[in-house]
Each structure stands twice: as C-alpha cells, then as structure tokens.
Design a protein around this nucleic acid. Structure first.
Lengths: 338, 338
DNA sequence: AACGTTCTCGTAAACGTTTACAGTCCAGCT
DNA sequence: AGCTGGACTGTAAACGTTTACGAGAACGTT
C-alpha cells in the first residue's frame, strides 16, 4: 500500500524473521525455500519495500545510467538522436542522463571528469568542436565512451559517423542531374566538425561534376540555426543568382527557402533548395524540401548499441561504423511537381 | 595526469600519510592544517583522484539528480521545456535524468515507483493523461514532485500550468477583431489534458464573442503531430470554409497552413491561421504563423525552480503557479502585411 | 551408522564515502 | 604546576545493498 517512509532490507528482514541476506536473495530471484520466499514476499509487500538504487550501485559497481552529451538540445537533429538513444537504452534497462554541452568546449571537459566520478556507466558524446584537450581527456576516461562524429586524432574509441562528403555529393548530383549549374552553398560555421566536413564535400562534389566554383556562392551562417540562416541566405542572394542552393542543415534550408520565396523566386522553378539531415522539418516546409538523410537516427541507434555492447564486453575490439547517406526528394527540387 | 585506474580515498590517504578522514575533510574544504592540506592536495593530484559519486550519494542521501518525464521527447514544446529545465538544474549543480513516458500510462507509474528507489532527488512530470492510479502513486512518493499541467483531483503538489482557456480566448479574439466570423478549430485528442482544456477554451471564447458554433468546424487530430494535422485539416476544409483556423498546436497549425495553401487558399487573406505554443516552428513557417505563447519555457523554468526550492525546504507550503498566455502576431493573420 | 552431498540460511565483510566522537598536542590561563 | 580550551587529526560507525563463506540440516549412499 501507499506509504511515504523509506523501508530497508533490515526492516523487511525483521518483519519476515529472517536475515537480510535471505531477503536480498529472494528479492533477486536466488534460490530459497518455499517458506522463506513466501514470508519475505509478504513482508516486502506490506512494507512497500523498494530497494535503494544508490546502495545497489555502490555495491555492484554499476549505476545503470548512460550519459548523453549533445551540443544543443534544441537542434532537431539532436532531438531525434536523443529520442532514439533514449529508446534503446531504456529498453536495455538503463536510465538516460542528459547533458547539454552548450558551445563552451570546457563543458565537455567538465563532463568527462564528471564521468570519472562514476555517475554513469558510459557516455555517448557528439562533439561539435574537438579541441586538443578533449583527446587527452577521452583517453583518460575509466568508462566506455562512444563518439558520434569524428574522433580527435590518436584516439581509439567506438565511433559512428555520417559520410558528409557522400551526402553532399548526393545533393549536388541531384540538382546537377536536373541541369542546374550555379549551385550555391549555405553552410554553418566552418570551424565545427560538421561544417568543415560538409564544405569539403561540397567542393569535392562540384569538382567531380565539373561545375564552376563561385566563391560568392558560398556563405557561412554564424551557427546552425534558422535565424542565422536567414542572414546568410540574404547575403547569398544579394551576391548571386544560383539555380540551386544546398544547405548544411534543414534549418538553414528552410531559411534559404523562405528568403528566396519572399524575394519573389519560385521554388523549385527558379531555384532548387536541398537541405541536410532530413529532419521532420523538411516535410513540413512549404514546399517540402528535398533533404539528405545523414542517418541521424540510425547513427544514434548504432551508437547506443555499440555502447551497450561494450558495457557487456569491455575488451571487444574498437568498432567504427559509417552510415551511408540517403537522398529524399521532395517538392523543393522537383520541377515536375504539379 | 591521465590515468585509467580508479583511485579511492584510502589510496590518497596512504600516499599522503594521513587518515581518510583528513583527506575527505581537505577535499571538502573543512579546516585542516597547512601541512596536511598540502600533502593531501599533492597526493590527490598525483593519483588523479576523483571522488565517487555513488558512494557520496549513499552517504549523504542525495543523488544530485533530477528526473524529468515528458510524454514525447520529439514535440518541440517539450524540447524547449527540456532545454530550459536542463539549464536551470545544471546551474544548480544537478544532473538531469530524462524519461520519455511515451503514450502508455503505465510508464508514468513505473517511473514513480522507480523514483522511490531513489535514483533522483526529485521529479518534474508533465503528464498527457491522468489516470486514476497516477494520483495514488503521486501521493505515495517519498520524493518531491512538481507537475507541469493539471493535477489529478485530490493531489496536493507544487504545480505550474498554462491558462489554455485564456490562451484560446486570445486566439479567437484576435481573429474576431479582424472581423472574421467562421472560426474553425483543429484540436488534438480531446481525451488528453491539453486537448480537453483547449476545446473548453475554444467553446467559451466563441460564446463570449457571440460567434456561431458550427460543429463541422471543429476537428480532432489523432495526436499532436504534423501528420495527424494534415489529415485533420483536410477533413476540416472538406466540410466547411472557415475564414480563420485556430489550432491546438504549432505543428497542427503548420499542417493547416500547408493544406490550406496547397488547396489554393491565400493565407491570411482567405483564411487566417493561428497556432499555439509559439515554438520556433511558428517563425519558420511561410508565412510565419501567429501563435499563442502558453509560456512553455516560463513554465519549465518555474517548475524547475519550484522543485529546487522544495529540495531546500521540504516543508514549504505547496505552490501553484499559473502562467499567463501571450499572443505573438505574425504574417498568418496580418492582413495588412505587405 | 558413518559419511559425503546438497540445500538453505545466517554472519560478516565489502563497496567508497561522510562525520560523530574521542584523542593528542600545545598554548594560555590561574 | 595544573587546568582549560582550542585546533587538529585519527578511529570507527554508518549509509543500504550484495555476496563469500561457513554452519547446520536434510538426504542419500555405502
């Protein structure tokens, strides 16, 4: 029944007239005689006994918690990752501890030393930037860590990442196949891991298709948000008249879409827009935007499973998995549509 | 320095040549002699000592964790709440444990008994539905809980909620002020707490303005998602031709917006759209949608602060706070725009 | 009947902290 | 000189579990 006082093994043991060892055993399903089992069960139920998680953790050396650290809890792509990871780890019996590491790289460091306090059994980390010190801290960790994104040089950890370069190729090829030739690029900060990777992919894809590179057609938003995208897109359209804009992000893509269409351009007829990440947002834009799915949820799932596996067998060989991108075509590039 | 082995108070004590009590004291800033302090600091640094969170928790009876349970980690309004709560509690030195309680009401119950295991010091809960059993479990909890949303009857807990009724009034009045008379309503499931509240508010607001209620102009999406919104809006526009559509949600509003504009209606000239929650989405729609801010982040902040306060003084009187809604007017209702 | 097995259960240690308490030392009093 | 008191430190208990170990009972075997 309902009760508001804590009750411990000792209390249950007294009431059942057995030792605390016996109580612990029956409650954990270890073998015990019929009679004892019965008495313990009854006593536990009457007292509304619930075992203490902290004490158990201390004894068994596991917290049954997994920490997740992402740069921005607000970014839809992180949200979908979070949801997926939450799903996987709770099914495996773990709780999820969420840490937002903001933009300050110190946060990540703090988190790692915090992890060494043992508040979680493992960590999934998706760093935006990778400063020097992060690498050394990662190496020094007592607990398993899996990284979503690129690893700092010299660090050997389980890791899952997207193939941004292939992703950009998908995007550029798609519009190039439609005969578009002036392919602009709205990027996020180029000093971030994804920013750098996507830029590399863009340039490579242009070259591969033999498209002219126009430095005026490449613009960098101050971060990966919608607002920043509005500014960046406006700057872009002031400088040139692309017939396609690929964006590092769905948010940036929607910004570009809105700037373009408010500027009187028809999408996709005058200019095609393609986003990246294929978040829910892509579908709810009007027109819905074509987007490259970098496999956020797949990556998240893989990361969670990698971590769970390593918790099971700490000495398994390090695994690195790369998720292939996939293009989802929607109205923002489909000239034929309607 | 980097090291991968755990190191305990005892180890540090040995190396420093003092007792573990002294080590503990020094590290916790309790008074100690110059010499001891020095030696302990040095030893701790050399060994890379980091105190164990679990052991500390067991001893002091606090985990320094706060649990947050929301129905759907994916819903933008929960996301913004999460972000805010995360912010507040981490600043206060707590970690955030995230539980997604899905749509299954059992999850909430499980969570509450789980909480009694003491994995967190308190809980912030935002229930979508409030089954009978939830009330009894809430009462039985040993730990402080604050509820975002309506309380089950007979439960006395700290609580913060939005004034949906006033919010709906704001929405309806706004479009009515523009002379619109056929005000339709796209709602979410009416058996949820917000669904019921918003419907009540809608009806009341209609009556207050003396607007005719057309039962065909009221439609219920199967949940609060964009997809469900598309269906619902389509059904609505088949049945009637409103000159305004208020929606229980920004997602539903964007769905309505897209259905309407794809159906050849001009927004806002033919039909005005107003959403609710005023999430980031409202701004990135095209046209941007007018939305009623039900104070999600304000509520989240208040909830977190309420909980922190109660952790400080467990016997403070129960507080209930209601956040006033605010209307943000954007292009989807602004006839004059452009 | 003696002995080995197996089963069940209790005793006690351990996990890594914090902290009440008592002890030591030394200075400052009377 | 003897006492009081303060500053510091060590001893040990405690938080609530899990679990190694051993004692005893029950049973079957020879």
């Amino acid at each position: 029944m309902a009760q508001a006082k804590k009750s411990t093994l000792t209390l249950v043991a007294e009431r059942a007239g057995v030792s605390i060892a016996s109580v612990s055993r029956v409650l954990n399903g270890q073998p015990a005689s019929e009679a004892v089992t019965e008495r313990v069960r009854a006593a536990a139920a009457e007292l509304g006994y619930v075992p203490d998680a902290t004490a158990r953790s201390l004894k068994v050396g596991r917290t049954e918690q997994i920490a997740l650290a992402v740069a921005d809890v607000g970014n839809p792509v992180y949200v979908s990752m979070m949801r997926e990871i939450s799903e996987v780890v709770t099914r495996a019996g773990y709780r999820l501890v969420l840490s937002s590491t903001g933009s300050d790289p110190r946060d990540q460091i703090d988190l790692l030393v915090g992890l060494n306090r043992g508040f979680a059994d493992g960590l999934i980390l998706s760093p935006l930037r990778v400063p020097e010190e992060l690498g050394t801290q990662l190496r020094a960790s007592r607990f398993p860590i899996v990284i979503i994104g690129s690893l700092p040089p010299g660090v050997e950890l389980d890791n899952v990442r997207a193939d941004s370069v292939a992703g950009m190729a998908l995007a550029v090829d798609h519009v190039a196949d439609q005969g578009r030739e002036r392919v602009a690029f709205v990027n996020g900060p180029v000093d971030t891991v994804p920013g750098a990777a996507r830029r590399g992919g863009y340039l490579k894809a242009l070259a591969a298709r033999g498209l002219r590179r126009d430095t005026g057609a490449e613009v960098e938003a101050r971060d990966f948000t919608y607002r920043a995208g509005l500014d960046a897109a406006a700057r872009l359209l002031e400088r040139c008249t692309p017939d396609a804009i690929v964006c590092a992000n769905d948010l940036l893509a929607i910004a570009a879409l809105n700037v373009a269409s408010r500027g009187g351009l028809r999408v996709p007829d005058d200019v095609a827009i393609v986003g990246m990440d294929d978040t829910d947002l892509a579908e709810l834009a009007n027109p819905a935007i074509t987007s490259v799915d970098l496999g956020a949820t797949t990556r998240a799932k893989a990361a969670a499973e990698l971590l769970l596996r390593r918790l099971d067998e700490p000495d398994a060989p390090v695994q690195q998995v790369v998720i292939e991108p996939k293009l989802t075509v929607r109205a923002s590039t489909e000239r034929s549509a309607r």
